[in-house]
Design a protein around this nucleic acid. Structure first.
Lengths: 335, 335
DNA sequence: CTGAAAGCGCTTACAG
DNA sequence: CTGAAAGCGCTTACAG
């Protein structure tokens, strides 16, 4: 392994000077700088990240704590986040929470010993702030920047970037109602998930706007994961109970696609008999048949904003506390 | 931050002793051990990963170099790999290659300075071993274990875990032929991807088994990403040229689903007019309508094997050079 | 503008 | 069984 000392020896300077050239914070004579750079290139030197991190009390890694990487919106977020971080020299340490609150807590506890530059929490689950807040404060004390993605935790002093889910749900349901697709059911979590809560709120608002009410039989509150099978089963169960609907708002595209499959299996024509709108804008929705109408999301925007927060923290600037991203109604075939 | 010294002070021993207790390699008097452990618990001590890594010349992180995290099979692999690594105290550093060969090269070059415990290469792209081999040898010299996932690089001395893609493709095509779904087209990469090459080989073998030939019009060699849109366009293009097929083997489930959408849009009934089989066993295939028949994959098996390789390397045992995983034909509705 | 020195928090060979 | 000491590879305050 080539070390700083090797570079210094080759350039005929002290290790301190090499370090100065590389960090670029201090003035170094141009001629010296040139010799050092030549040695760096010549030897193919890369600084030892561990030594750097130990010395600076700070690494260049950001932990991404994510609910479920197998959900397409999270995979997409991960991709864009990694790209955004890489552009400012940060690496991505991935932890799949699998919706496990204890894992989240454990990771937050370990963050200081990992000398993380930041922690990104991308969880759709409700967070127990009573437990988490002290841990997060501890991170703040060590200048480990925490960012929440997907849910708004800014009232707890945590910079957040999230979509306006209540507004999006309201838009989707209003669209369904206006096209004559009432009654509209809500398919998804209503309380076990912070995000689900927002979407459900928007759903009820849209109904209220139309003078309607969210009766029990219209709320297919599937308190399990946001996956295809849950959507399938929820639809089957409701239809089995004799519920009549003409529209469905799925709180995720996966749920919506599962519901579409169930509807097809029961002989319903989509959208003629039942119209369906999902949430997330995942790629497969475009190639489902019928193609899934959905409320899009903006993973690139999320990545860019997290980058901005981290950059601001690093440079000692004021960190933006919240950014609300819009979702667009993408109309395809299912509604 | 609680350090080793704090623990030592509280337990009334030297830092060296605390370290010995924690590492568990040396004998420590039971009474001393107990006092140390009490102090560790009491202070909530976690060792500084950077200091440990610097001292040991080795971190506990494994880099996952992955083609495209947005492809569901890769997201799934990532999940299982992270879980497997975590079970042996390793962390996952994620790098999305985006099919970029230069990024792969750059990452391999940086691996030593990151003091990685291992590097997992999960790429579907053809690797330029002339360029990569020297870099990988350099990693070996520093005891950074490299593992290839998805393609067989064992002939280059790189431990590999992969599916038997040629056999799987052969099975799928034989099934199609036997059910009377010939002629069968191959949809996917044939040369630009190591994995595609294997699948294409199996396709040709199955045709040869039946005394058939892979004529040009049957090979929809879409040398772009393994995504839905590519499958859609390839199907449309072929049909537009007047090609007649009754079966399609998609080299990925995404390609297959894209082709199904195109077939549906052109008024073909699946599987009556055209039967389709995909590759990967991704979750959405089960809830597509018609549900996608596919050759499954085994991400859990991959994760477990990578773990085993890393464990063997760590313990100085002989590292298994290759493991071939089988794919199962999952028959649903599309074939 | 540059060098010598101290120290980040660990681990382990060396003594005892 | 345990402690003192050296050193992993960096960075930066301190001198000059």
């Amino acid at each position: 392994m080539v070390t700083l000392h090797d570079v210094a020896a080759r350039a005929g300077v002290s290790p301190a000077t090499v370090s100065r050239v590389l960090r670029g914070q201090t003035v170094v004579a141009p001629a010296t700088r040139a010799r050092v750079m030549e040695a760096v290139e010549g030897l193919g030197y890369h600084p030892n990240i561990m030594a750097q991190g130990l010395r600076l009390g700070r690494g260049n890694q950001v932990a991404l704590l994510i609910s479920d990487i197998e959900q397409a919106v999270y995979a997409s977020l991960t991709k864009h986040l990694q790209e955004a971080l890489q552009s400012i020299g940060l690496e991505l340490l991935l932890f799949n929470l699998d919706h496990n609150a204890d894992r989240l807590k454990g990771l937050l506890e370990r963050a200081p010993s990992l000398r993380l530059a930041g922690v990104v929490i991308a969880s759709s689950d409700p967070l127990d702030l009573k437990v988490l807040k002290p841990l997060i404060d501890q991170l703040a004390a060590q200048e480990i920047q925490v960012v929440a993605v997907g849910q708004n935790l800014s009232r707890h002093g945590i910079p957040s970037v999230f979509h306006d889910d209540a507004a999006a749900a309201r838009t989707a349901v209003a669209f369904l109602l206006q096209r004559g697709y009432g009654p509209v059911a809500y398919l998804g979590r209503t309380s076990q998930s912070a995000i689900g809560r927002e979407r459900f709120k928007g759903y009820r608002q849209a109904l209220a706007d139309a003078g309607l009410e969210a009766t029990d039989d219209l709320v297919w509150s599937w308190e399990s994961r946001y996956r295809y099978q849950a959507g399938y089963e929820a639809f089957m169960t409701a239809i089995g109970r004799g519920v009549t609907v003409r529209g469905v708002l799925g709180a995720s595209d996966e749920l919506a696609i599962g519901a579409m499959a169930a509807a097809a299996d029961r002989g319903f024509h989509i959208p003629k008999d039942i119209a369906i709108i999902g949430f997330g804008g995942i790629e497969v929705g475009e190639h489902a048949r019928p193609a899934l109408s959905t409320m899009s999301s903006d993973p690139r925007g999320v990545g860019a904003h997290v980058r901005e927060v981290l950059l601001a923290a690093r440079e000692g600037r004021k960190v933006p506390m919240r950014l609300t991203l819009d979702r667009q109604l993408v109309i395809r075939q299912s509604a």
